[in-house]
C-alpha cells in the first residue's frame, strides 16, 4: 500500500527489485542444499552406494527436459503467444509429476533403510528436493490457471517468469544432487 502511494515519485525499477530478491532467495536456498550435500560427504565420504542407475539417469533427464519446456513457456509469453505458453506450461507440470513419481518409486524400492547413514542422507536430500518440486508444480499450476484466464502478456508476466526461475533453480539443485547421490 505504501509502495503504491509512492510509485508516483519514486520510479524504482520494481521488476528488477523483484528479480534480485528472488535471486537472493535462491542464494539462501543454495546454502540450505549445500549444507545437506556437505552432510552427505561428511558422513559417507566420496563412496557410492548401490542405487538404480537407470532410474537415476531417467528422472534426471526428465527434470532437465522440464526445464527446457519451462524456458519455452517463458519465451512464448514474451512473444505474446498465450496458447503456446499454456501447452509448454502444462508439459512442464506433467514432467514435474513424472519426476516426483520417479522419486517416489525409488523410495519404495530402495535397498537401504532410513535408519542407516546413507539412507538418512538419501531420503532427506531427495525428500527436501521433492518438496521443492511439488511446490514448484503447485505454483506452475496457479500461474497456468491465471494464464488460462488471460491475465498475462508480453508486457506483464512477472509471476510466470518468477515461477519458472524457481523451477530452473530446483532443476539446478537436482543437477548437483544427482551426481552426489548416484554417481560419485
Amino acid at each position: 500500500m505504501a509502495a503504491a502511494t509512492h510509485a508516483a515519485h519514486a520510479p524504482h525499477d520494481t521488476l528488477r527489485i523483484k528479480r534480485a530478491g528472488l535471486w537472493l532467495f535462491f542464494f539462501s536456498e543454495t546454502i540450505l542444499f549445500g549444507l545437506l550435500m556437505s552432510a552427505r560427504f561428511f558422513l559417507e565420504g566420496i563412496e557410492r552406494e548401490h542405487l538404480d542407475q537407470a532410474l537415476g539417469v531417467g528422472i534426471t533427464s526428465i527434470l532437465v527436459t522440464s526445464s527446457v519446456t519451462a524456458y519455452m513457456a517463458e519465451t512464448a509469453i514474451e512473444h505474446d503467444r498465450r496458447g503456446e505458453a499454456m501447452w509448454w506450461l502444462l508439459g512442464t507440470i506433467a514432467l514435474g509429476f513424472v519426476f516426483a513419481f520417479g522419486v517416489g518409486y525409488e523410495w519404495a524400492t530402495a535397498e537401504f533403510s532410513r535408519h542407516e547413514a546413507f539412507g538418512t542422507v538419501f531420503f532427506t536430500m531427495t525428500g527436501v528436493h521433492a518438496g521443492h518440486v511439488l511446490s514448484g508444480v503447485g505454483l506452475l499450476a496457479l500461474v497456468a490457471i491465471q494464464l488460462g484466464r488471460g491475465r498475462f502478456s508480453s508486457k506483464e508476466h512477472w509471476p510466470i517468469s518468477g515461477t519458472i526461475m524457481y523451477w530452473h533453480f530446483v532443476d539446478i539443485v537436482w543437477i548437483f544432487f544427482y551426481p552426489t547421490l548416484y554417481l560419485v
Partner: peptide, 25 residues
Amino acid sequence: MGSYRIGWIMAVWLLVLIAVDFSIA
C-alpha cells in the same frame, strides 16, 4: 529476448552432458 533456438540448443547440450556424467560414473 527469449529465443526458441537457445532452448533447443540447450536441450541438446544438457542431455549430452547428462549422458557424459553417467558414462564417467
